[in-house]
């Protein structure tokens, strides 16, 4: 299962392939459960108690509690599933994206209005390592 993939050298990007889908199954199914209002309420009332109902790893639970989306991605979360968490928090895709890039929402919005992040210098991990 660990053969390299042609997209493994793209920087700052987690491709949701079977390696990730297996890791993240329970994390993503937990996210899916937040589509029901009653589950959202229970989750919001006590994150930890609700998470303890799921067969997730402790790292996954802590990443959810911390709203550490990059960590969740690395533990098998898929962005469309994770979106149920920040939607429950009343936050936007743009806000969530900004937290993943490590800049303020304002700075992120400014970058997008200026045409977004250029692909130049962002195609290969080797380009990021140089900097």
């Amino acid at each position: 299962m660990s053969e390299p993939r042609p997209y493994d050298d793209v920087p700052g990007t987690t491709v949701f392939d079977e390696r990730m889908a297996r890791k993240g199954y329970h994390l993503n199914q937990f996210c899916m459960s937040l589509m029901k209002p009653e589950n959202r309420e229970r989750f919001k009332a006590d994150n930890r108690a609700y998470l303890d109902e799921w067969k997730m790893s402790e790292d996954q639970k802590q990443a959810v509690i911390d709203r550490d989306y990059n960590k969740m991605l690395s533990l098998g979360g898929n962005i469309y599933f994770l979106a149920k968490i920040f939607s429950s928090d009343g936050l936007s895709f743009q806000y969530a994206a900004s937290t993943m890039t490590g800049v303020s929402e304002e700075a992120y919005l400014k970058m997008m209005l200026a045409g977004g992040r250029s692909p130049d210098g962002n195609r290969y991990k080797s380009e990021w390592e140089k900097n």
Binding site: N70, A97, T101, R117, S118, P119
Partner: peptide, 17 residues
């Protein structure tokens, strides 16, 4: 068209592409 919603590279847009 071009978009990336996740990770440190989020916000990528490739207009010429």
């Amino acid at each position: 068209m071009s978009h990336q919603l996740q990770g440190p590279r989020a916000g990528l847009i490739n207009q010429p592409w």
